[in-house]
Design a protein around this nucleic acid. Structure first.
Lengths: 146, 146
DNA sequence: CATAAAACCTACAAACTAAGTAGGGTATGC
DNA sequence: GCATACCCTACTTAGTTTGTAGGTTTTATG
């Protein structure tokens, strides 16, 4: 299951994507809008910044903002960053590979093969879905254009 | 990631499947063969028994044995039993459904839809793979038939 | 029937991870 | 130069996973 941290990250990113015209947005604004603890969200946004997904501005009028287009931010990237490996076993993880303690030979391990399939099927979805797929298409703002 | 409990369960089931001709097998035999703590494995086998996958015999000459054909035991069943939900969110779980705390409307939630896809892709693998796919096809025993 | 073997069951302990909190440091705008 | 708001480190709390302890019940066998 996805951790709260991961879910909070998606909520925050969605908020930022839907409010890009505002420029820098306060942590507090996101936190109260999405019902997330201010300090906990602070840590999450910092991680997203260090990963090159968000930019920030300090001092009065500061806040966080997207530095990539929503369609360039894959769900896989966010999940890996905040939730950890997508694979079910360390020995089939593309980004967090580790040799299995008990497994003698990966090449002949039947489990290994199947877990690769699971990983690839999952990636087929989350590598091809982006933040833009999470944005609600019918916000008030969009209607105002007409 | 799969828990140790889940991995141990697969190891134990594989052992039992590869040694069906032995009849009842001692916990201790499986534990030492697969390097699992006896008492921990005891709990796992008990769960598998309660789920109707294993049978047991008490007393001298007792032990555990499969009561289903390996090809009838899907990986999904084992994973759900010992690892919990396969889905990434409670609101898309088929066997452990729970309403999302924060989600207002599942029908219009974009996350919901994507997570359903992830779940279905995963299930496409693990509902169609069974214990028989984990059994090594080249054991000594098999060669002895010729 | 006595004994030993082996599963059954409940409860607990230790280790690890996730979630959240505290408090001060640093850059920025006015 | 002061208020603002992000930055950073460390800590606490809560929950889960992993493993252990110790006794109970059932069964084969001499």
């Amino acid at each position: 299951m996805l951790s709260k941290k991961t879910k909070y990250a998606f909520h925050a990113l969605t908020y930022l994507a839907e409010n890009q015209e505002k420029g820098a947005v306060l942590i507090q604004e996101i936190a109260s809008s999405k019902n997330i603890s201010h300090k906990f969200l602070e840590n999450i946004l910092l991680e997203l910044k260090k990963a090159g997904i968000l930019g920030s501005k300090k001092g009065k009028g500061g806040g966080y903002y997207l530095i990539k287009k929503p369609e360039e931010i894959t769900l896989a990237k966010i999940i890996r960053l905040l939730n950890g490996p997508i694979a079910w076993l360390p020995c089939v993880s593309l980004n967090y590979y580790e040799k299995c303690a008990d497994c003698v030979d990966e090449a002949t391990c039947n489990m290994h093969l199947i877990m690769c399939q699971v990983r690839d099927q999952t990636l087929a979805v989350v590598e091809n879905k982006t933040l833009s797929d999470l944005i609600s298409k019918t916000t008030d703002k969009q209607y105002l254009k007409y």
